[in-house]
C-alpha cells in the first residue's frame, strides 16, 4: 500500500470515560470515511474498541483496519485513530503530546469531571492539535500556549475593576506577599 502522501493523517480523536461512553468524539472527514459514516457505526466501533483496550496499557494496537494509539489516565481514555499504514511512532507521539498538553491545561487533573467542567479548554486544545485530520501542531508546550483561558470573571466585576482572587492560589499569593512584607519590616526594624 502506498503511503499517504497527503496531509490528512488522523481518522478520529476520541475521549471516552471509564464505561466507554464518549466525552469527546470527532471523526474527521466523515463523508470520506468508509467505515464510520453514521453515528451508530461510530458508537459500535467505540464500544468494541473500548472492550479491547480498557485497563490494558498497551499504548498501541491494530483494530478494525485502523491503527489505534491511546492513553488511559484516571477514569478517561484519550484515543487517536489513524489509517493502518500510518507511521506508528508519529501517531503515538501525537496522542502522548496531546495528553500532556491537556494535562497541563487541566492543572494535572485529567479526569472525567474536569474534562466536562473545562470542556472549552479541551475542545480548543484538540482543535489546535488536529484540524480536519491534519496534524496542526505536535509540541505540547506550543499547544498549551495556543489555548486561551476562559474570561477570568464576568463583565460586571471587570468594569468595576474589583478583582479579589479567592482561589487557593490567590490565597497562597496573598500569604506569600504578606510574609515577604513582614520579613522586610522585620529587617528594617533590626
Amino acid at each position: 500500500m502506498a503511503p499517504n502522501i497527503g496531509l490528512y493523517t488522523i481518522s478520529a480523536t476520541l475521549i471516552l470515560d471509564n464505561e466507554g461512553e464518549r466525552l469527546y468524539a470527532k471523526y474527521y472527514r466523515e463523508s470520506e470515511s468508509h467505515q464510520y459514516q453514521t453515528l451508530s457505526q461510530q458508537l459500535q466501533f467505540e464500544k468494541n474498541l473500548f472492550s479491547k483496550i480498557n485497563k490494558l496499557h498497551q499504548d498501541i494496537i491494530l483494530y478494525d483496519n485502523h491503527l489505534i494509539t491511546y492513553k488511559q489516565t484516571n477514569d478517561i481514555i484519550l484515543i487517536t485513530v489513524a489509517p493502518l499504514n500510518e507511521n506508528e511512532s508519529l501517531v503515538y507521539s501525537l496522542t502522548n503530546n496531546l495528553n500532556e498538553a491537556l494535562n497541563i491545561l487541566l492543572d494535572s487533573t485529567f479526569d472525567k469531571i474536569t474534562v466536562l467542567e473545562k470542556y472549552d479548554l479541551v475542545s480548543l486544545c484538540v482543535d489546535e492539535c488536529i484540524d480536519d485530520g491534519i496534524i496542526l501542531e505536535i509540541d505540547p508546550a506550543i499547544l498549551v500556549s495556543r489555548v486561551t483561558n476562559p474570561p477570568t470573571a464576568s463583565n460586571v466585576s471587570n468594569d468595576l475593576n474589583i478583582h479579589i482572587d479567592l482561589s487557593e492560589r490567590g490565597l497562597f499569593n496573598a500569604l506569600s506577599f504578606a510574609s515577604k512584607k513582614l520579613g522586610e519590616k522585620l529587617q528594617q526594624g533590626l
Binding site: 464518549r22 466525552l23 469527546y24 468524539a25 461510530q42 470542556y119 463583565n155
Partner: peptide
C-alpha cells in the same frame, strides 16, 4: 447587550459538547 463573555463561552462549550457527542 452587553454580552456576558464568561457565560457565553461556557454556553459555547456546552454546545460543542453536544456536537462532539454526536
Amino acid at each position: 447587550s452587553p454580552v456576558n463573555a464568561k457565560k457565553c463561552r461556557q454556553l459555547l462549550a456546552k454546545l460543542l459538547r453536544l456536537l462532539y457527542h454526536g
